[in-house]
Design a protein around this nucleic acid. Sequence first.
DNA 1: AACGAAGTTCAGCATTGACTGAACGTTCCG
DNA 2: CGGAACGTTCAGTCAATGCTGAACTTCGTT
Lengths: 176, 176
Amino acid sequence: MTPGESRFVEEMGRYLGSMGMTPMAGRMWGWLLICNEPEQTAADMAEALQASRGAISGTARILASAGMIRRATRRGDRREYFSAPPEALESLMRNGSRIYTDLRLITERGLAAISDRPPEARERLEEMRDLLAFVAGEMPALIERFLRERAAHHRGTAEMSSPMAAADDQPFTIPV
Amino acid sequence: MTPGESRFVEEMGRYLGSMGMTPMAGRMWGWLLICNEPEQTAADMAEALQASRGAISGTARILASAGMIRRATRRGDRREYFSAPPEALESLMRNGSRIYTDLRLITERGLAAISDRPPEARERLEEMRDLLAFVAGEMPALIERFLRERAAHHRGTAEMSSPMAAADDQPFTIPV
DNA sequence: AACGAAGTTCAGCATTGACTGAACGTTCCG
DNA sequence: CGGAACGTTCAGTCAATGCTGAACTTCGTT
């Protein structure tokens, strides 16, 4: 790993670490985004990230359940191959808008707790709830718009990765 | 503070605490969103939140610099009055889109670190950067659209709080 | 002027939680 | 059938950090 790569991995670790995930999750994801060999075994990552196998195992669980990495197995091979799939981005964004959803739920419970107050006392929270719901609701459309615009721009030069088709081409075993 | 209110305050504390701010920042903000008297002194909050004066002081700094609370002073009154201003929401949202901006910067540096790789090896990061830039760029327009739609819906019933006028009506002292 | 109240700062404490490393279970190969 | 390689789990350690409380500064009052 070059110094520049290491810096990127470490920054991603600090960032995701400060956002509710663990630093190791950020490092692992960052590494999978820039490593030369797109598919990495647990041993590969343990060496690259200088981490224990226990940390790799636990972190892989988190990232996989968040949809940010893909775990693949090959027949007759005990090892697992990790990679950052193209859909990872959308997962990240979906996770991002979870911020708004979660906050809205908290706000909703807060409103329930002050339901006996006069309307003007509840305005602050009500507007907050409405804005959060609005943003969370608009997020998917925003992302889809990006994908469409990008597809239009890259027409012919790259494969057309439609967001709708994404569900289909997710093999659970890597073709040898 | 009723149990329901306390729960809201505590949940907001845990949430903002997990998002890079401190739990106390979340509690303070939550309390300012639901408290009966919109303007609270440090002593008020220290009692409501059962926190030390040191914690109140430090936390108020953070929240004020993030634009999430307003500190006001009255002539001839040593105390400061804290409140969650209407613009707090927009500040929160602006803070929210900082997530995308920050991540994009990290991604940008990552791309610089692997600039010598073949194009197909950089695709993962490049698409990520583009999406992040797109979302960050669209966020302000999204929020403005919400404010417009809300203003249209509430026409006449509430004061028209235009986002453009927000910069003007921010008095640094509360009129007695 | 002096006392009291408000705000700030900072060293110290306590808690949290991320990571390690060993023990265990499981699968593949000789 | 051993033995090796791989993944998982969990108790223990250690660093990070949020909060407290006391000391200090500043401002208003009598």
